Amino acid sequence: MRDWLVGLGVAVAGLILSWGLLVLLARRLPPGILRDLAAFIPDCLTAVRRLRRDPRVPRRAKVAIVVAGLWLASPIDLIPEFLPVIGPLDDIVVVALALRYAGRQVPREVLLAAWPGEPRLLLRLLGAADGPAAGSRATVDEPHQRG
């Protein structure tokens, strides 16, 4: 029993250290694709927490979002986290699928308000605007076109 608890403690410590490294890289890297990828998982966790509490999010979308958040927090993965580059790949795929599912049921302005990162990354992930708030994409892109 003691060996099992030590193994679990090591796994949790490894997960926390890898998340800390992602947060550090997300703040230190220059703007670009590497910074976006490093910030993706912490941004997803923040968005999951915000969307879970939002009354405008339907129950089915909340369930999908919470399952994705639990998948991220779980130390058990299809691809071990310690593998460089491909380790977080299963987490990214699960969260991307959950956000795309929620994107069809939740207005885009709600998703964009919950997303702490770059809006362009979330918009790329969500794909074409065919959900409840199809017109909100222009409001996000306008400031980038003016500036």
Rank of each mutant, 00 (worst) to 15 (best):
G103Q: 04
R104D: 03
D91W: 02
L99P: 09
W19I: 10
R146P: 09
A38M: 10
A64G: 00
L45I: 05
L70I: 11
R28W: 11
R137I: 14
I16R: 13
A113Y: 01
D141F: 14
V63G: 04
I16W: 12
P143N: 07
F82C: 09
D36R: 15
D130A: 09
L78W: 12
R35Q: 15
P55M: 02
I65N: 02
A13E: 07
G131M: 02
R60W: 02
K62E: 03
P116E: 02
L111R: 04
L15T: 04
L29V: 10
V66D: 11
V67E: 00
W19A: 10
R27E: 13
R53A: 15
L122P: 10
A26W: 01
I92K: 12
E118Y: 14
A102W: 13
V23F: 12
L15N: 05
G135Q: 13
D3W: 09
A13R: 07
M1N: 08
E142S: 11
G20C: 04
Y101K: 10
R60E: 14
G20E: 05
L72M: 13
G87A: 00
R56W: 05
A38K: 07
V66S: 03
M1Q: 06
I41D: 04
R100N: 02
R2Y: 03
P107G: 09
Q105F: 05
D43G: 10
L17V: 13
R27N: 11
E118H: 14
A61C: 04
L45M: 12
P31C: 03
P107F: 14
D130F: 04
R27G: 12
G9Y: 02
Y101D: 08
A68M: 07
E81Q: 15
R124G: 15
G69K: 02
P42E: 05
G147F: 15
P30W: 09
S18K: 09
L123K: 02
K62S: 00
G69Q: 01
A133L: 13
V140W: 03
P75D: 08
P31H: 06
G14Y: 00
L112Y: 05
A73Q: 05
A138K: 10
S18N: 08
I79V: 12
Q105G: 06
A138R: 13
L34Q: 08
I76D: 01
G32C: 00
L122E: 01
A134Y: 13
G69N: 00
A61K: 12
A114M: 02
I86C: 01
V106K: 11
G20A: 14
G14W: 02
Q145K: 12
G127V: 03
I65M: 04
G14L: 01
R59G: 05
P132K: 01
F40G: 01
P58D: 02
R35N: 06
V67K: 03
D91S: 15
L15Y: 06
I79E: 05
G7M: 09
G9S: 09
A64P: 03
R27L: 14
P75Q: 07
G32N: 03
G69I: 04
P119S: 01
